[in-house]
Design a protein around this nucleic acid. Structure first.
Lengths: 339, 339
DNA sequence: CTGAAAGCGCTTACAG
DNA sequence: CTGAAAGCGCTTACAG
């Protein structure tokens, strides 16, 4: 058995109330007594039982995060941002993965109930209805990259639509007209927003052509798409992958097939994962500050916990990072930027 | 206020005991009654309070992990492994970062007390004494990559020493004799083990030379080391960085200085992070199955929780991944492997 | 300054 | 099959 506050009280010949006060730094305990109690507590290796404490204080000092996955560069960065904000306020992070399943999200929600002070939920897949149904009404929640922005909850999202549009405009400015998009899964909110951005940018360009292939954000699906693209009769002039991992997979497939990037075909990604600048050629991409998204979301939640209810400021817009995978941009003199 | 079991009981006109039994699937509740209670519970959006429940059941269904950091490829992979094992047993993961500080580790330990069924602790920095002092005696714990393997706890570690030795032998077999090691921090257990492996391998080679530079596992420190190496009067023939990130930094510095890898100098890393195969030239490195470490550790802990007390099997040895950054290995015909 | 008592939201013998 | 009661380990008014 674990040692409890009772054991400490008995050993120190005081009541449990006094032990509690002494250990929690309340003012009204004699200096000597506090010392004795502290000594007993360390000697017995006493650690307060977190669940018991939070049952009565209604505070857990932890933030719960439900993410599609716990690993990969994206989530890793996201957690970094959340961790920064959390530790600033002496809060802990309880993370759980939903694996993109609405059912597992609901499970995670139940498991976290009563164990966290607030919730950070990213669920790019879930339909709004299901999410809203399962979110515990009483616990402050901040949503990330979700369709479900129905006003009941604070929601933060990357500007996927704007980012994709920016990239396509860049591709057009480089002179490319036939563009292949390696999109993400249809069920994914981020993926659909990026695709929408591509369509919108292209609708402004009369002679633009778009062919959409579907991937699932994995390197492998990018590889498959690359193979398909390279076999096309009318090969696209540029490929825009909905994330960098797929762009990398596509790059490999193109390499294998002897198609040179950027000489034969331009290639662009989205996210700017660290690897993007290490490949050959370095990848042109949209930089998304994922850590910032996590940090902002956590700060918003912490603010809510403190009674502050101003809606979150949006995060910075994705930034176009021009490297070498799309060929030379037009020189300033000859081609004016149409915007 | 949150809705509690009392609210459900009142609304369903039964006692809280009955609600508890109905919702937890105990056999002795009428079918009709269970249905009514379920209906009320969902209508009220009732979720059992986790802290209250685990206070009485002595179970949290949660594994706590204390890691130096939550992000970066290494920890990301580690969490993936732990997540795989945990979810197989319907357990959740509560992660906390110690930032390499013994004090923060102790804080995290206190914060997790009573909130987890078992602990997974990685603390490559901490001295054994401090760790042992702070580990709660009553909660099952598995240690990872730690000096503190004093028999009280199950400990799992990567074979850093053997891996480093293997790499140096490969470098020697490639004909390199003057070797520079970009080591990790002295306070880090993994780092010291890798350095020890290098020394041991080199002590078998009469004409081998070693120069040790210190880094901190970051890309930047690798970059600084690369600059220094390139300035050396007697330039080493091969550089072995204690991890891939430093190797990458070094590669950049060498590139900038116009020193070609592998033509002018060989370069090797450790870890085989995904990026290693994307750089030019692709990096020769030791592959460590980090996810496996996490998974094994979690499985060991879960076994302990179930009363099984067989010591953990060690994880697979790091594997030499030969790519292009170390020049051509000796051809089979001419140079026999000395081992 | 210290202690006795109530209560946080649950679960589980113990009765009936 | 259902309910009243005890108790998990804490904290905090309320007395003294």
């Amino acid at each position: 058995m674990s040692v409890t506050i009772k054991d400490v009280a008995r050993e120190a010949n005081v009541s449990v109330a006094t032990v509690s006060r002494a250990l929690n730094g309340h003012a009204n305990v004699t200096h000597a007594l506090r010392g004795r109690i502290r000594e007993v507590a360390t000697r017995l290796r006493y650690m307060p039982h977190g669940a018991a404490r939070s049952l009565i204080t209604r505070r857990t000092q932890t933030l719960g995060a439900i993410l599609p996955d716990l690993y990969g560069e994206f989530f890793s960065e996201l957690m970094r941002g959340m961790d920064v904000a959390a530790r600033e306020h002496n809060l802990h992070l309880l993370v759980s993965s939903s694996h993109g399943s609405a059912e597992e999200t609901a499970d995670a929600l139940r498991a976290l109930s009563g164990r966290v002070d607030g919730l950070l939920v990213m669920s790019p897949h879930a339909d709004a209805a299901l999410l809203a149904q399962n979110l515990p009404p009483a616990v402050p929640t901040v949503l990330m990259n979700t369709r479900a922005g129905d006003g009941d909850y604070h929601t933060l999202a990357i500007d996927n639509h704007g980012g994709a549009r920016t990239m396509v405009r860049h591709l057009l400015a480089c002179g490319h007209r036939r563009i292949a998009m390696i999109a993400g899964p249809e069920s994914n909110f981020d993926a659909e927003e990026r695709l929408r951005g591509v369509r919108d940018a292209l609708s402004d360009q009369a002679d633009g052509e778009l062919v959409v292939l579907r991937g699932d954000f994995s390197e492998k699906s990018g590889y498959m798409a690359g193979l398909e693209i390279q076999r096309m009769a009318r090969r696209p002039q540029a490929v825009f992958a909905a994330n960098d991992m797929m762009a990398l997979g596509c790059l490999f497939a193109l390499n294998v097939a002897g198609v040179s990037v950027p000489r034969d075909i331009a290639l662009a990604g989205f996210d700017d994962i660290p690897m993007a600048r290490f490949v050959t050629p370095p990848l042109t991409t949209m930089r998304v500050n994922i850590a910032e998204l996590g940090e902002r979301a956590a700060r918003t939640l912490i603010g809510t916990l403190a009674g502050d209810d101003t809606p979150p400021r949006g995060i910075g817009a994705p930034e176009l990072i021009i490297r070498e995978s799309c060929g030379s941009p037009p020189s300033r003199r000859t081609a004016a930027d149409p915007r």
